[in-house]
Simulated assay, not measured.
Amino acid sequence: MSVNGTPLKWAGSKARIMDTLREHLPAGQRLVEPFAGSCSVMLNTDYAAYLVADINPDLINLYQVICEDTRGFLDTARLLFSTANTAEGYYHLRQSFNRDKSNRTQSAAMFLYLNRHGYNGLCRYNKQGIFNVPYGKYTSPYFPEQEIHFFAEKAKRATFLCCDFEETLALVCPDDVVYCDPPYYPASDTANFTQYHTQGFDKFDQYRLVTAAGKAARDGAQVVVSNSHIAHDVGLYAGFEVNHISAPRTISGNGNRGRVGEIIVKMGR
C-alpha cells in the first residue's frame, strides 16, 4: 500500500514503517493518538474517527488552522515560501514567530515555513519556550500543497486537542484503539532528542506513559506503543507483548543513517 505524505517533515515520522505498523494496529472505530507528531499514522490508516493530541501548541494550532481555513492557510503559507530562501530571512521569521503568535493563521504558516526550511525537520525548543532550530540550507524547500489538501480532507474525521498524554489517555473509551509514539527512550544522554516541547520528555515521563497506557488497556482499550529497543532492554515494558522491528534512522549526528532497532508494544486484549 502506498504511503500518503504529511505536510510536515518530522524526526521519527512513522511514514517509513507504516506497512509494518499497520500490521500491529487492531481494528476499531476510533484511533486515539496522544503524540500527534506529523500525523502520518492518521493519514495512513482508515478509522471512522480520530482523537489526535499533542502537548505542543504550535503543532496543534497548525492542524486546527488547516482544518478551519484551508484556503486562507495555503495563501498565507505560500506567500512565506515565495520570499527569499536565505539564512537572514529564516532567522528574521523565526524571531517573529517566537515574539508574537496572536494571529493563529500567520503563526501556523510560519511554523510550516520553519519546519520546511529548518535543519532536518527538527522541532526543538529551549526551556524558555523559544523555537531554536537552525537554518537548514536547503536549495528549494518543498511546499506541501497536495499534502495539506489531503490532510484537510482526512481531518474531517478528527478532533485535535492540545494537552498532556495523561489527559488524552483519560479520555479513552473501552473500544478505542490507542497508538502512542512518544519521544524515544534515549540510547544515551547525548542522543536525547526530546525537546519537542519546552518541558521535554525525560525517563520519568517514560514511566508515566507506561502507567497511563497500561490503565487504558485494563479499562478495555487496545493500546499499541512504539519506542526504541533501549526501552525494552531496561525493562520498561516488562509483562507486555513486545515485537522487535528494524526502522530507518532519521537523525544522526555522525552522518550514519542506517537502520535501528525499535519495538512495538501491545497492551490489552
Rank of each mutant, 00 (worst) to 15 (best):
I60L: 07
T20F: 00
K9Q: 10
F131W: 14
H197E: 13
G5P: 01
R116L: 06
L31V: 12
C163Y: 02
E166T: 14
C123Q: 04
K203V: 09
S188C: 10
V260A: 15
H232Q: 15
Q199N: 14
R259L: 09
A109I: 07
D219M: 14
V65W: 11
L93R: 15
P141S: 08
Q195F: 08
Y63C: 03
A87L: 07
V265C: 08
R249K: 13
V265M: 08
H24E: 12
A216H: 10
Y119C: 08
V242S: 10
E88Q: 15
R104I: 01
A187V: 14
V234M: 07
C39D: 00
I66Y: 05
Y196M: 06
S140I: 07
Y237Q: 07
R259T: 15
F201T: 05
Y91E: 15
P182Y: 11
R71M: 00
C162V: 13
L236C: 13
E262R: 01
G235T: 06
E68W: 08
N126P: 08
Y90R: 10
D19W: 00
N103Y: 02
G200S: 05
R71N: 04
L122S: 09
V41D: 09
D233W: 00
I55F: 13
F240N: 10
R269G: 15
Y185A: 01
H232C: 11
T105I: 15
P144G: 07
L51Q: 13
N254M: 04
A49Y: 01
Q29N: 11
F201C: 10
P174V: 06
G136H: 04
G258S: 11
F111A: 01
G5W: 05
R269Q: 14
T168G: 06
K266E: 15
G268I: 12
Y196T: 13
E88F: 09
R78A: 05
T6L: 03
F150L: 11
F160K: 11
G258T: 09
V260E: 05
L209M: 14
L169I: 05
